[in-house]
């Protein structure tokens, strides 16, 4: 449903007239990826186990570069971040770690984008409370306040349509 929501993260083509050093390309990709992670404002639990060295490196870089927490005046969102727990449905691979923190002011579309990248799929269907798909424009903070279970927002995800 939300394919191109985060316009600032569009993949622009390279300028073909530039002569590029191959090592610069890899470095640029790493920097680009860490910048995007920091934009998501996603932190991972410190005791998480990452499968590959490169992804743990990315996580460390993201944590180093994370944006300043927004202090919200709303109730129940200490430090401006909320916890999301991801639950896979069906044959789709699980996200490690299963729980992440995200800024309450992020739209739900950021969560969908994050899942697509972590699980490496083109399309993912996300649901709250095994029931409904929220609008991509809804803020995760509002969803958390309304539908949280044990201080976590449970987001189930599937590669195909699961709940109508």
């Amino acid at each position: 449903m939300s394919q191109r929501l985060i316009e600032s993260e569009s993949e622009s083509g390279t300028d073909q007239s530039e002569v590029r050093d191959p090592s610069d390309g890899v470095k640029n990709k790493l920097e680009d990826y860490t910048r995007r992670l920091s934009q998501l404002g996603l932190d991972l639990d410190s005791d998480s186990n990452s499968n590959s060295n490169s992804s743990s490196f990315m996580v460390e870089e993201a944590q180093k570069q994370k944006t300043v927490d927004h202090q919200l005046t709303k109730q129940g969102t200490p430090g401006g971040k909320i916890t999301i727990r991801f639950q896979p449905i069906g044959a789709i691979s699980a996200v490690r770690p299963a729980a992440c923190k995200i800024s309450a002011e992020q739209h739900f579309s950021a969560v969908v984008l994050f899942l697509k990248r972590r699980v490496k799929v083109d399309t993912v269907f996300c649901y709250i409370s095994n029931s409904f798909a929220p609008s991509p424009q809804q803020q995760v903070g509002d969803l958390w306040r309304q539908f949280k279970v044990n201080d976590e927002l449970i987001v189930c995800y599937c590669a195909t349509v699961a709940f109508g």
Binding site: S129, F132, S135, Q146, F147, F163, G164
Partner: peptide
């Protein structure tokens, strides 16, 4: 439909 599901849940 999903809007109504959300409303129903609330």
């Amino acid at each position: 439909m999903h809007r109504w599901k959300q409303a129903c849940f609330i």
